[in-house]
Structures are given as structure tokens and as C-alpha cells.
Design a binder for these strands. Structure first.
Lengths: 337, 337
DNA sequence: AAACATTTTGTTAACGCAAACAATCAGTGA
DNA sequence: TCACTGATTGTTTGCGTTAACAAAATGTTT
């Protein structure tokens, strides 16, 4: 592999002159420049990013820290794809590459989210719903590590973040239904009690409390994000003493299960039961009736997070910036209005 | 940021001793080792991967060259996710990170697929359905660049690849239908005539020719991978002089369109028309009737490709290895048997 | 205790690049 | 012609690491 030295020798100039030509920095006579470029071409010279990075402390790469792709892609969501698509656009614009670490453990302890940065493999970090412990958060803030969090609220540490307003979104949709006359609302929860799922449930409660509705215990259903748990939920409702008029599902896949079982059991959607999903999967348009669902603007969120990160990489990295994106109700025939 | 020198000073040893401890290489007295590790801990030392890479010519990263994520994720396919999930597993196993380049152009010319490697940002390359020109292929082969192609057949260049047998798969499904009595087969093509889409069509032709069937011109339909083009296709068939008894669709989304329009137009599926999709989208189980579809084992393909690449990174990189994965028919109610 | 082997530690150089500084050259005005 | 300016080119150094070689310390045998 040719290096600067080889090119310099061939072009009959010094190393630094070649460097200047490559980087378009400093004055070089046109004639010399041509000679150098010719040598670069002939030797198929590529600047070594390691040498470059070692010297300039910049590698033109950002790290994207995220659960395993497999994990993020389950339940049929487009979460990972859309987020990445947004991030990718900004990276392309800025000529940066994206690095995805795979080692989720570091010397037996919890994953060291900052390893990638400290090792100088990346210039900055995008962290997707990280499980940072407080000490790590403080480390990020104190050391002014260029970093933006997606899907968590980190304001108390002074760390920039981008999130969607799940809670407010569900609240508004629930409010909308209540205003349309619904009084008996139910909620089908998801598998783990992570923050996102709780937010959704909280938005539901916000509306319920605001309008002084009562939610029967049997209307708070447990699910595991699967179609079957949606089916089960509907059966549970049917076998109860009183049917709700609407059910909020923590994800679309479970909402599908509810729809299918409703059809099988002869429950009319939306006349007897309105069904609301969460995720905005493409399928929602293809069910019968079509499924009303709530969608996070994931592409925009990825884009925004990356934009904030690059802003930090260029200027001072210490000013925390924050963006909350509203979620969107994708209307469907599964809601009675 | 602490470097080897700082750690050495604190531990009262020489730089190379610290290096030895970090890399578990060579003999170091237990007592010394402890002192060094203590200093590492106290100074929060992380080995700089740039210095390391520059010296050892190894960066523990592989590059994944693929069209933009946005592009690969359209039409609702899980192509990208599944492939990446397979690759990720192998990378995790081998403690390698994954680098995704974003610059699809290099100095105004076509994308330089090898840039990442020549710049020493990665140790090897996984190339997903690349549009390599012959000279680049030869370059890969001649220079023994560790590289595995996914989704193309590169045997004539001696480059390792992993692919699925789309052609054979469709052939077998078509043959199956023919054996079940179908004589009038139609095919709904996709947008561009890329190799994959052609393969699918060719498999169809293989079966048609083998059994001496005639395919009316109006049974070869043009589509653009969208639901609407599926709907249009069905309308075209209805308005024709003779209806086929089965339609193969180049992707699932178009097959959905066919199903929907069939329902709207009163065409009975599968009694009057069998519908076969391609991709194996999750939705296929949720339509009514469920959609028969053909699935590539993408996770396995990603896994296999990565495995081959790591084998090259360890041993001699010149022996080309190849794997063709059979596709799978996911049965559904949309086929009359 | 001397000779030797083995373990342990250290010195130097190199990887490829660019910043800081130094030197040369051509052109300009006095 | 000479001093001066600006353009152009070159030399040296350091970024952080490890390999190769060198030296010192320890242990073992006679």
C-alpha cells in the first residue's frame, strides 16, 4: 500500500506538499499539484485514516449505541430502520461514517457506553434509549463528550436528547375519544415495564383522571407484544362483566390480535369496540377495518439527533439541546367517532 | 486522556510493560501486573485504537457496504434488519465492530467500494448486492482483499459470495402448482429489472417451459412494488380475455394489493385465483386468506457471509467460498392445492 | 560460587500523517 | 541593486501503540 512517502518520491516533492494537495490546504503551485495528483492516481494512494486520526484527533465517524439489532427489530417495528435512515442522511451530508459496536459487555461489567469514544474510534455518540447509570451520565456531561441521547430524557444531567411525546400523544388521542363520547377505556400493556411503555400508560391515565373516568381492573390487561396476547386480551374482555368501548394497545401487533379475535368472536369493530394501536406499522392500512395507530416520527428524530451531534462536533459541545417530537395519530376505521 | 506513558509513569514501569499487561502478552510478574492494572483503573486508561491499528495493521472492524438504509428498507421488507442481525451475531462473537460508510460517491466517480479498506478503516468487507464493475472485482480478487459478497454470484472472479436460490425457489413453487393442476400462470414483475427480480421471473419461466405451458402476454404484468400496482394488476387480469389461475408477485406488498382488489372485485382467492408473494413479510399471516409467500433465510445468509469473512481474516484470504441458501415457501390460504 | 537458563523489564524504531517551524524562491518598490 | 513581501516548498517533531532487540534480575544446576 502506497503512503505519503511513496507519492512524494514519485512526484519529486516532499511529504508535506503531498499532504497539502490531498487536503487542499496551504499554497501549492498548480504545476506541482498536478504532478502530485498524477502520482496519487498512479500509485492508487489512499490516505490512511489511522495516521490521520492519530494526528488530528478526528476520525470522521460517529458511534451509534443501540441494543442488538435483533432486539430492536422485534415485534415487527421499523424502529431501527427509520431511526437509522434519519441518522444516515445527516452523516452522508457531513461525510461521516457510522460505527456500530457489537460488544455489549466490557470486562464483565455493564456495557461501557463510552468505550468507543475513549478508544478514539468515533468522534461522538448517538445513544438510543441507553441504560446509563447516573455516574456514566455525569461522566458524559463533565467530560463534555459529544453525545446525544435518543428516546430518553436526560435534562437533569445536561445531556442533549431527542424524544417523542408518547405520553402527551396518547393523552390527546384518549381525550379525543372521550370527547366523542367514550367513557369506558381499557389499556393493553406490553411486556416489560420500560419507560416507553409506562409513558404510554401514563398518557392514558392522564386523560382518564382529567375526565374522572373509572377504569375497571379487568380493563388493564397484560400483554407481551404478540398477536396472541392481543387475542387473549379480547377474550378476557369478553368474559368480563362489562365491556369497554375502546382499547389502547401498547403496540400494533397486539392491536392486530385484538382485531382478529374480535372478528372471530363477533365483536363489531368499531361499533362495539374501538381499537387503537401504537407504532404506525404499514399493516395498519391493510386490515379490515384499517387500524388507527399512533406513530413516532422516527426518521425525523434520528435526523434531529444527528444534527445536534454534528453541531456539537463543530462548535462548543457543552450547550445541551433538546427536542421533543409530537406523535401522530394515523386514523383508521377501527375508531368510532 | 491518559495514554500508555501516563500509566507507565504512575505504575513506575516502562511503557512496554504496560502494553504487555493490557494485551496479556509476554511475561509480567503478578505484582507488577497488579500495579499496572491499578494505574489503568485510576487513570481510566483506554487503549487508543488508532495507535494500535497503525502499528498492528488491524482495527477490529468490518465494513458493511450496502445501498442507503432508506433504500434497502423500502417496500416494507425486513431485508436490511435480518441481514444485519445475522452479521451482528458473528461480529459480537469475534469482538469486531461494524462500520457503515455513508459516502456513496468518491471524487465524483462511481462509489469506490474499496475506499474503506484502503483507508484502513476496516479489516474486511461485506458487500450487499454491490454494483461492482469488472475492474473492481478483479482488484478485490488480485489484491486478496478480505471480502464476501451477499446477493450476487461472483464465482468467475474467485470472490466468495452468499446468495439465495430465488430462481430455483420460484421454479419449485411453480412446479408444485402445476402438479396440482394449474395451467394458467401469471407473473407480476417489480420496478427495475435488477438481477434479483429477473431471477424470480426466470424461475417462473423455467417451470413454464419445462411443462410446455403457454403464458399469455397480458399475464406478464408490470408493477412497481406498491400495493396500488398490485391492485392495478388484478384489474388488468379481470379485464383480459382469459383469467389465469395463479399469480406470482415479485414482492409481498404487491401481493397484498392483488388480495385486496380481488376481495373488492369479487374474485375468490384461492378458488378462482391463487396468489403467491415474495419476501415472507410478517403480514402474510394476518391477511384473509393468509398469503402464501417465499422467504429468503436472510439472517442465516448474513451469518454465513460474516463467518466466511472472519475465516478469511484469520487464515489465508484467497480461497473463495460460496454458499447458496434455498428459499422457503411459507404456506398460506391464498394457494389452492 | 560460577555458569547457565529463564523470567522479567527496558530501549529503540516504526506505523502514516499533519502541525509547527524553517527555508527557499519569485516578484515588488525604493 | 537591495531590502522586503508573499508564495511555495521542506524539515522536524509528535500523535499512541507494538515489534524487535537488549539488558537486567532471578532461579537452577554443578
Amino acid at each position: 500500500m502506497a503512503n505519503l512517502h511513496d507519492v512524494a518520491k514519485r512526484a519529486q516533492v516532499s511529504i508535506i506538499t503531498v499532504s497539502r494537495v490531498i487536503n487542499n490546504k496551504g499554497n501549492v503551485k498548480d504545476e506541482t499539484k498536478e504532478r502530485v495528483l498524477k502520482a496519487v492516481e498512479e500509485l492508487k494512494y489512499y490516505p490512511n485514516s489511522l495516521g490521520r486520526g492519530l494526528n488530528s484527533n478526528k476520525v470522521n465517524t460517529i458511534g451509534i449505541i443501540i441494543a442488538t439489532i435483533e432486539e430492536v427489530s422485534i415485534h415487527g417495528t421499523h424502529y431501527y430502520n427509520e431511526l437509522m435512515a434519519g441518522i444516515e442522511r445527516v452523516c452522508t451530508k457531513n461525510s461521516y461514517d457510522m460505527l456500530i459496536p457489537t460488544q455489549k459487555k466490557f470486562s464483565g461489567k455493564d456495557y461501557d457506553y463510552l468505550k468507543l469514544y475513549y478508544e478514539r474510534k468515533v468522534d461522538g455518540l448517538l445513544m438510543v434509549s441507553p441504560d446509563l447509570v447516573p455516574s456514566q451520565m455525569e461522566e458524559v456531561a463533565e467530560n463534555k463528550i459529544p453525545c446525544v441521547v435518543i428516546g430518553d430524557r436526560t435534562e437533569k444531567y445536561g445531556i442533549s436528547y431527542v424524544d417523542s411525546d408518547n405520553r402527551g400523544g396518547i393523552f390527546r388521542v384518549a381525550e379525543f375519544l372521550i370527547q366523542k363520547g367514550h367513557r369506558k377505556l381499557s389499556f393493553l400493556k406490553g411486556l416489560k415495564d420500560n419507560r416507553h411503555v409506562n409513558d404510554r400508560l401514563n398518557g392514558f391515565y392522564d386523560a382518564v383522571h382529567k375526565y374522572g373516568l373509572t377504569v375497571r381492573d379487568e380493563w388493564l390487561l397484560d400483554g407481551d407484544f404478540s398477536v396472541d396476547s392481543g387475542r387473549n386480551a379480547l377474550r378476557t374482555l369478553i368474559s368480563g362483566e362489562d365491556m369497554p368501548t375502546a382499547i389502547f394497545c401498547a403496540n400494533d401487533i397486539m392491536a392486530l390480535g385484538v382485531l382478529f379475535e374480535a372478528q372471530a368472536a363477533g365483536v363489531k369493530v368499531p361499533d362495539q369496540l374501538s381499537v387503537i394501536g401504537f407504532d404506525g406499522l404499514e399493516v395498519h392500512r391493510y386490515t379490515n377495518p384499517s387500524l388507527a395507530t399512533i406513530r413516532q416520527p422516527l426518521v425525523d428524530m434520528g435526523y434531529a439527533a444527528a444534527e445536534i451531534l454534528f453541531q456539537k462536533l463543530k462548535g462548543p459541545a457543552d450547550l445541551p439541546e433538546t427536542r421533543i417530537f409530537p406523535v401522530e395519530l394515523l386514523m383508521g376505521g377501527s375508531i368510532k367517532v
